[in-house]
């Protein structure tokens, strides 16, 4: 029975055991940094692309089908392709990046397009500079959508990043531990590492919300002084 499912008590005990080993922390931080790297690169690229495609209709028409394809293609196809293109240590980073990019881009692009035209006309009538329009209207207008996109994409980055680790099995990663647990039928380990991934994803999401809150608060203070 313990091969099929592990009781919460057993899983909790196993997590405590794992946390007492240096190996656990090495693997945890390895996966955490890899996925965080892919996530941050995806956010950065998504923002840049959203700015470019909001300014240029031609770029929007060029990138939209590509990003739609990325969004709809099964993640496993990308993982296998990425294994052909790059080293297995880079695959989880690349896959996290690829999952985050279209979410950030699509949400930001929609938010920019839905910015209140009455406020934009007011800005025009009062002669706001392009920088002031960006700072006073676009940024506060898209911020709630951006925050939602940031938190939504955290889950996708973790799910896809860990899946990439399971398939590419880079040394010292959580994904490799999940793969080994499956191969050796160590169900308690499988559950324990899964709980660790869920907790890390939740902590990461809280961290993102906290950081964005701080940044937007600071930006608002700076604007009003």
């Amino acid at each position: 029975m313990s091969v099929l499912i592990a009781s919460p008590a057993v899983v909790a005990k196993r997590i405590v055991q794992l946390m007492g080993t240096a190996d656990f922390w090495v693997k945890t931080f390895y996966s955490l940094f890899g996925i965080m790297k892919g996530y941050l690169l995806g956010v950065l690229a998504g923002v840049l692309l959203a700015v470019l495609t909001s300014v240029s209709k031609a770029l929007y028409s060029f990138f939209k089908p590509m990003l739609t394809v990325i969004k709809t293609t099964p993640v496993v196809s990308f993982i296998i392709l990425a294994l052909v293109w790059m080293s297995k240590t880079q695959v989880p980073v690349f896959i996290s990046f690829l999952m985050v990019l279209p979410i950030i881009w699509a949400n930001l692009t929609t938010a920019v397009r839905e910015t209140d035209p009455l406020l934009l006309e007011m800005a025009k009538a009062y002669g706001f500079s392009p920088l002031k329009i960006l700072h006073r209207i676009y940024v506060p207008s898209v911020l709630p959508t951006f925050l939602t996109a940031l938190t939504t994409s955290v889950g996708f980055a973790w799910k896809a990043g860990i899946a990439a680790e399971v398939i590419s099995t880079p040394h010292n990663s959580i994904g490799t531990q999940l793969y080994n647990a499956k191969v050796y039928l160590e169900t308690a380990d499988l559950f324990a590492w899964t709980v660790v991934v869920i907790l890390l994803s939740m902590l990461f999401e809280k961290g993102i919300i906290f950081a964005v809150g701080k940044i937007s608060g600071k930006a608002h203070k700076g604007e009003s002084t």
Partner: peptide, 15 residues
């Protein structure tokens, strides 16, 4: 056409 995220003072301060 006031900026909903800005205070009364900040709205006037835009100009």
């Amino acid at each position: 056409r006031l900026l909903p995220w800005a205070t009364a003072l900040e709205n006037v301060e835009t100009v």
